[in-house]
Design a protein around this nucleic acid. Sequence first.
DNA 1: CGCTTGCTTGGAGTGCACTCCAAGGTTCTA
DNA 2: TAGAACCTTGGAGTGCACTCCAAGCAAGCG
Lengths: 155, 155
Amino acid sequence: MTVMETTGTRTDTCAGPTQQQNRRPDGDDHYTISEVVAFTGLTAHTLRWYERIGLMPHIDRSHTGQRRYTNRDLDWLDLVGKLRLTGMPVADMVRYAELVREGDHTYGERFELLQTTREDVLARIDELRGTLAVLDRKISFYADAGRALASERSR
Amino acid sequence: MTVMETTGTRTDTCAGPTQQQNRRPDGDDHYTISEVVAFTGLTAHTLRWYERIGLMPHIDRSHTGQRRYTNRDLDWLDLVGKLRLTGMPVADMVRYAELVREGDHTYGERFELLQTTREDVLARIDELRGTLAVLDRKISFYADAGRALASERSR
DNA sequence: CGCTTGCTTGGAGTGCACTCCAAGGTTCTA
DNA sequence: TAGAACCTTGGAGTGCACTCCAAGCAAGCG
């Protein structure tokens, strides 16, 4: 049995609200770099850079050497996008990509990495909630001050 | 009437779960840079840098030119810390600091800035929740795969 | 008094995540 | 079949937020 990160047929399914329409059916899923730019919002520079640093697998090439991305590559980029949103350093994502490439025996390590990331995200959400509370207090302070200034002007 | 950001006596009050004990009473609140380092977790380098770029007001000096921070400075650093957590660029925080220094007539702009930031934080929390969902799906996928591998081994 | 520890300054350096460039080959449209 | 638009590469450059350095002054202690 093989633990795959992402496959042509199912990908730990239901990819969420991501822009996944416009995709070609698996089998003739060959996208140019500019199509992937349109899908992901990343720049072509960044996509090439991701490949260079090992955050992407080596992408298939056309007979003339141009990149041809597959649906699987797009799925991977979706995940990377999500992880990036968490603030995970690129180096850690590269590490994860390496684990995937290395095969099944890295399963445990990958699992742990995901769980650590999950904890980080929860902590981050909590931090943001704390900040939100401060912001709300400050905003209502300003609203009060605004009313005071207004009534002062009307006096 | 003056809209103050932070005062010696009240600061739009109840500063939250921040480490505010160990503070000296207002009036002999004079902290060295290393004390502020201990309070905030920032480095002395960073504190000096904040002052240089205008993210802090000019800090009082001792007769020999050493920085002496006040409770008010600590309050400001608390806010800066919170804003930093939201991912607000330092340049924007500097802008806010300038508005505060410029006085009452910047009230409206400050209010807007805070509200924009609030919206950003809400959006960020939502993003993180989306990521959390992806992570949870992936984690349970790995958990299932783990069970499958285990049962395979036991066969 | 000497020593350690802490503080000062301007300016240079670091690490991250891109971002861009030049020079040239490829693919599409009229 | 010409020209525009797009793609390739390695390597250099950018912007942000620190982070560190060297040289020197200051304060507290035995």
